[in-house]
Nucleic acid binder design. Structure first.
Lengths: 361, 361
DNA sequence: ACGACTTTAGCAACAGCGTTGCGTAATACA
DNA sequence: TGTATTACGCAACGCTGTTGCTAAAGTCGT
């Protein structure tokens, strides 16, 4: 279903997407970029200025003619908090509307922590971050953690290597504990959202590769997060790259993760990076992504090696390099990507382009 | 940009999507499925009836109350022609608005045929099919062929194993030759469109695996075709599954296609199917697709074996089978999938849900 | 200093979308 | 024959972006 409120929100999001990636802009900029008439842009801008999301920022004097009004995003008009739940740590990040990290905190989590423990730590950390400049302008809290989990229902189904985490309705419980809207998603999907939010609309097809006690991929396809039918896409580490490879914990042989980890265990970081690169090239060929972002603690510990190997592989091993080019980068957010992305998912849900409207039935 | 015409078209497409998959329906059915109010559905239906796409079909008498008006899709109100350009043959198909194949024709193509030859054959074949019951109700012509090609610009960049096919503006030339709107896309993407068009909106995440002088995958993600940044996604056959496997024509080792073809050459169809199955499981894990459709001449020649092996692998080898379930089927359209899908892409472009509106810049 | 020109911006009327409120038509059943 | 029930459309409405036009605010040439 699509009605006028949908239309309104859609165009507002369109304007926000431009505003987010430009230091400043004027009415004509947006009109050209969105296809809206200048008159319509005026109306949309008026609403956004009214909400405090955008503010006038002087005028630009052209060679001839009346000066044009200049606008810019008010980055600290909205904030969101993101949480990256890892096996031993809880990393919290406060981001503003522009996707900049404004504050952060890291807490240790006890081994085999329970949902109750996490919620307590989460509430304490969120309380501290919310006490800062964010004030009452907090949009919500995002949580990124290992799957499998059910994004649609907000429940953790069976977090990898964590006991006490079976069918936990984490989103609901966190909303109660925090009194704020909560989004729950896989860590890798949160991570790729961070990149997309910061890069803007030209970032349409991308993958975030994360190596951190496991290998996963967050997918951003066609300008939106790809989660898949059961919201568990991205189990990239358990794709087979070597039919005669070593056995994997998942029961198969030659999984990317198993082959990669064996190289790491042997101290062969370069070899491990090469294995990962094979997987990345597979991904590029299958999905034709234009951006590959590398992240994860275990990867960042040898960032240069990984980036060099993956970059070279993508450049030389894709057989049809002319038509499937991908840029390989390290995430500019470093260790904060996942937490920051979790925060940006909250902003994305509220101020981003709506996905395809819910399908019939 | 989104304006009132977008809104109108969107809701009309929504109604059409329901109409396409149901033998008959009434106002309340659509209202419930789309979230539109009954009043709005009345207005949309009036427009569609006016265009001849939908027609009243009697009434349903409920236990009590006024009978409800029943409607149904007018399948033969619109037609489209699809062409599957393979290395030696040109397969043409006439489909109606419901996605049913109404007529077809197969022509042999000379070895190393040129664009000119293809266009001549195409014009002749289209002329014959258009002379039938389709009359003047032809929406356009779709062409599906091997890549790499540029869907966005309608040019064939460098068709695999075809000389004379470098940077050919096929869409433009075909539109001139045929006097009809033409869509050009990769064969596999066309194929998966056929499945999506026939299955309806619940078919949101799927892959069509095609084995026919090469291995490729057509991807349908998030309710739309996934083509990737350079519209060349789906080069699935050249993903590495065996690091120490045989050399591949693409210059790497152990590509799915190379390992698969080696088994075929050795007469080991079951082994070949198992190799393909490994690739499919990789795809399911990476993308969390809910449907896997098998197609392609070389696969259909041993359809039972392939389906059995892939089905079993997807059921038993996905480590987290509870959360990543996929249904494995053979395409109901058999050898016509690609051509039929090419035709349906034309219908999809005209009567399907619009994709995410063009991004800024 | 002044008019011509250019560019920007907003007001007002407009067409068209889905929504809402309410009256009416068509049936089964008592 | 009346009543309850269900379906459906007319008319008014609020809201969207669009269009046409006027006003404002500069630069530039004379």
């Amino acid at each position: 279903m699509a009605d006028l409120t949908f239309l309104r929100g859609y165009n507002e999001a369109l304007v926000m997407a431009v505003a987010r990636t430009l230091p400043a802009f004027e009415r004509a900029t947006i009109a050209a970029a969105t296809g809206l008439t200048p008159q319509a842009v005026s109306k949309v801008l008026a609403r956004l200025v009214d909400d405090g999301l955008i503010a006038p920022a002087g005028v630009r004097r052209p060679a001839v003619g009346k000066p044009a009004g200049v606008y810019q995003l008010v980055a600290d008009s909205r904030y969101a908090i993101g949480a990256h739940v890892a096996r031993r740590t809880l990393r919290l990040v406060l981001t503003d509307l522009a996707g900049a990290v404004r504050d952060s905190a890291v807490t240790a989590l006890p081994p085999d922590f329970t949902p109750g423990t996490l919620l307590r730590e989460l509430a304490a950390g969120v309380g501290r971050l919310a006490a800062g400049p964010a004030g009452g302008r907090l949009t919500g809290v995002g949580i990124g953690m290992v799957g499998p989990l059910d994004h649609a229902h907000g429940t953790v189904r069976d977090a990898h290597r964590l006991r006490h985490w079976h069918d936990v309705p984490l989103r609901e419980r966190a909303e109660q504990a925090l009194g704020l809207p909560v989004h729950l998603d896989k860590d890798v999907t949160a991570g790729v959202t961070a990149e997309a939010w910061r890069h803007g609309p030209e970032f349409r097809d991308a993958a975030l590769i994360m190596v951190e006690s496991g290998v996963g991929a967050g997918l951003w396809l066609n300008g939106a997060a790809h989660r898949g039918a059961h919201t568990n896409a991205g189990e990239f580490g358990h794709t087979v790259v070597d039919l005669s490879g070593p056995p994997c914990v998942c029961g198969r042989r030659g999984c990317l993760e198993a082959v990669h980890d064996r190289a790491v265990a042997a101290g062969d970081i370069r070899g491990a990076a090469r294995v990962l690169a094979v997987g990345v090239v597979n991904l590029v060929q299958t999905l034709d992504v234009a951006h590959v972002v590398l992240a994860g603690a275990d990867l960042l510990a040898h960032a240069g090696t990984y980036r060099a190997e993956v970059e070279q592989a993508v450049r030389t091993q894709v057989p049809r390099a002319d038509w499937q080019r991908a840029e390989v980068t390290l995430s500019g957010l470093g260790a904060d990507v996942i937490a920051a992305g979790a925060a940006m998912q909250v902003l994305e849900a509220r101020y981003g382009l709506p996905g395809r409207v819910a399908p019939p039935r």
